[in-house]
Design a protein around this nucleic acid. Structure first.
Lengths: 99, 99
DNA sequence: ACCTTTGTTCGTAATTTTACGAACAAAATG
DNA sequence: CATTTTGTTCGTAAAATTACGAACAAAGGT
């Protein structure tokens, strides 16, 4: 009854993405990026009532989960969805939710 | 820049569901329930290599997020998806992921 | 060169999550 | 009525999450 044998890789990947989506601020960022292709974190700092260090942490989590990526456009950083992983997330949730 | 004004209720609901889905064990349970309409937590205890108290905690979280519900069928408890909220989750993720 | 802008990292703190075993509760079964 | 089955709750501990401000780093503008 090894955990590796019971829970599939797909389930783990889906859970990983879900976890990253599991905070209102991160959900906000993802939804923004899925609607407008990219944004600067400065915009987010202005819009969201959280410290920039906190936002930075949330963006880092989204990056580590593979859902977004940042591109330096000095002195700013342009964030976009990571299209490949976004597609995977779409696929996994589609299957999972049967939609 | 009130948090309530920036982040929508939908985003908060979606994040709440995502958070509940954000653990492999809970993902496993949800996927099982979406595939077979119901199960007994005893079955889960046998399948999953975790303490029954831990499983109970995960089921409680899924219940509190509104994704599942338990029905007493003494001495067991039968778990099913909460169809209404599951539909809402489907809807929210469908919108969010654009699928 | 200096200053401003932009964003990360660090240090810290409070809270939440995850996990376990032991104890407990409820109810069926012998 | 004692025992077994089933699952929750409690106590505890370790780790992760969330949040902030201060300090720092990088690079563009003056």
């Amino acid at each position: 009854m090894n955990i590796e044998k019971v829970i599939t890789e797909k389930q783990k990947r889906a859970a990983r993405y879900a976890k990253a989506m599991g905070h209102p601020v991160r959900m906000y960022v993802l939804e923004l990026l899925s609607s407008q292709s990219c944004c600067y974190s400065g915009d987010l700092t202005e819009e969201l009532p959280i410290a920039k260090s906190t936002l930075s942490q949330h963006l880092k989590e989204l990056k580590e989960a593979g859902l977004i990526q940042g591109e330096i456009e000095a002195p700013k950083i342009k964030y976009c969805l990571n299209r490949e992983n976004w597609k995977e997330a779409q696929f996994l949730f589609k299957q999972f939710l049967r939609i």
